[in-house]
Amino acid sequence: MAEKVVNIEMINPENLVYQKTKVLNDNVMHYCPGCGHGTAHRIIAEVIEEMDIQSEIIGIAPVGCSVLMYNYFNVDMQEAAHGRAPAVATAVKRLWPDKFVFTYQGDGDLAAIGTAETIHACNRGENITMFFINNGIYGMTGGQMAPTTLEGMRSSTSPYGRDISMMGNPLKMTELVAQLPGTCYVTRQAVHTPSNVRKTKKAVRKALEYQQKNMGTSFIEIVSNCNSGWKMAPVESNNWMVENMFPFFPLGDIKVPDEE
């Protein structure tokens, strides 16, 4: 394997331009190869490092593939029951108003079983930041249909594709919470290309800065892939996401604070 290391003379701290943030530990993440959860974790961790708030932030982990995210973040974290992360975050933030508090949730967690907690936390304008990883499916449990599953999209419980007449319409949770007075910043991003990663990072930073200014709930959807659940190779799943998910879940800011 040694021949794969090239340009050895350049490898010294003086030339270092990118390395994994220390806000993530060295554990190997359990996510499938190419899954956007890993990239989303790293972006959030990088912003925590850049804002120097590692000891000031508390994360609430969901149920779903990211249930074990506390094994990777070097920050305080609390696990919540399925869908209840916004309720737990509400309590944590009210007890420690000076801390930064975030939830990290999949679409099964945030937009199915936790719909009530999501909507009410956003409507109350809890001063928290919510990260919503939308891969259109229940990844952890074997690729079942989620409220976010697209029309015609195959899943293990809609093997012939989602039929709206029988299974109802896909839900745009992000547009929904944008209408609530408690949200200050609502945006939809992705993490499959370098430019999308950079945009998402800016959004994460803004969201946490708005929280610092007590402006209400900030909500960032990240449209992501579930290559295992979609039964595709990683790069193929990202291409499928661009072609099929983005037309229904278009990227960009949905609500920004007045000051902007």
Binding site: L16, Q19, P194
Partner: peptide, 22 residues
């Protein structure tokens, strides 16, 4: 051929790429 742009490293879901540039 590498310019040290870091694009690969910032999209790597597992954060396994370290980049050097001079």
């Amino acid at each position: 051929g590498c310019t040290g742009c870091s694009n690969c490293a910032i999209v790597c879901p597992d954060g396994v790429i370290t980049v050097y540039r001079k």
